[in-house]
């Protein structure tokens, strides 16, 4: 095959070459329409009301577009959830079996081997631990899915037009649906250890909704960071594991720190960190022996604050780079 220089003789012929015409100021030869002649591309676009392709919409418009794609967001999250176990023989049973096995492993290690149940009555410890694992996993997997939401779906981003925030939101929604399966397991575990359905169980709904908003915000933030630096996908599991061990998933923070010489601000920071707050709220709602004495003060306000902060900051931060996703 001849190289691209093989057709240079073209310039001697009468065929209009665009590389020539561009220097003359016209846009393209076949476009040399008298009334529009001499107009720059920008003026021509303005004259016919064309807009820049792929430009970032305003924040309000962006919210509107995202709402318009709600069916896609839901369908995508459900599809991802179903596709996850479609090759397994037990199929969708794994939705429930996975959290159950997870809880069993943590109970074996922390409850039986290490005895981390200090300061908690033993009949409260198992539901305490299982709730902690499930609620933390909700945040953890939302962040991990968020990191890959754009960088792992470049094909989709480069092929179809939709507000890119659909992807991290959809992944957070997938984790919410996953959590609902876990909650089935949790109800059984909690009842097996002597806490029965009560009105206080309804508090789980606002607690998890706030956590979902918080998770979505984090997923949006990490989606933008992960789109720029895909290496985060390798790093985040370590960060998240550190966070898990510091948040009192398998031990009670006040009980663990009680006989240690640590400054009170450290205990406050640990207790007010969002993961600990959401875990404590769900435990408080569902476990009879886990009363308000275990909760930090103003816990609902803190839960709401974290949700609003992460949700709003994450959304704006993600939207700011909307036109740049899909490169690299």
């Amino acid at each position: 095959m001849p190289g691209p220089r093989g057709a240079e003789h073209l310039e001697d012929e009468s065929f209009p070459l665009v590389s020539e015409t561009r220097h003359d100021g016209t846009v393209a030869v076949s476009a040399a329409v008298p009334p529009d002649e001499g107009l720059t591309a920008e003026r021509l676009a303005a004259k016919y009301g064309l807009s820049v392709s792929g430009a970032r919409p305003s924040l309000v418009e962006y919210v509107r577009q995202l709402w318009g794609r709600r069916h896609f967001i839901l369908a995508f999250s459900q599809a991802k959830l179903t596709a996850q176990y479609s090759q397994a023989k037990l199929g969708q049973l794994w939705q429930v079996a996975t959290p159950l096995l997870n809880a069993a492993v943590y109970f074996f290690i922390f409850g039986l081997l290490l005895g981390a149940d200090r300061g908690i009555p033993s009949d409260v410890y198992v539901p305490f631990l299982v709730t902690g694992v499930f609620v933390f996993t909700f945040t953890q997997s939302s962040v991990l899915a968020g990191v890959r939401a754009i960088s792992g779906n470049l094909g989709l981003v480069r092929a179809l037009h939709f507000p890119r925030a659909s992807l991290p939101v959809s992944f957070a929604l997938q984790q919410l649906q996953q959590l609902l399966f876990s909650m089935l397991v949790l109800v059984v575990v909690v009842m097996a250890f002597g806490s029965f359905p009560a009105l206080s169980w309804l508090l789980v709904v606002p607690a998890l909704l706030l956590q979902f908003v918080f998770n979505t915000g984090l997923a949006l933030i990490f989606a933008r960071m992960g789109a720029k630096t895909p290496d985060l996908a390798q790093l985040m599991p370590f960060v998240l594991r550190t966070w898990m061990y510091a948040s009192g998933v398998m031990f009670s923070i006040p009980a663990m720190l009680a006989d240690k010489d640590v400054p009170t601000w450290l205990a406050d920071v640990l207790q007010w960190n969002p993961a600990a707050v959401y875990m404590d709220l769900v435990r408080f709602a569902m476990i009879d022996g886990y009363g308000s004495s275990y909760l930090p003060p103003h816990v609902w306000a803190v839960a709401l604050g974290w949700a609003l902060l992460a949700g709003a900051a994450g959304f704006v931060y993600f939207w700011k780079a909307e036109e740049r996703y899909g490169r690299g």
Partner: peptide, 8 residues
């Protein structure tokens, strides 16, 4: 893809 606004 650039015309479709999919590539910056």
């Amino acid at each position: 893809r650039a015309i479709a606004g999919l590539l910056p």
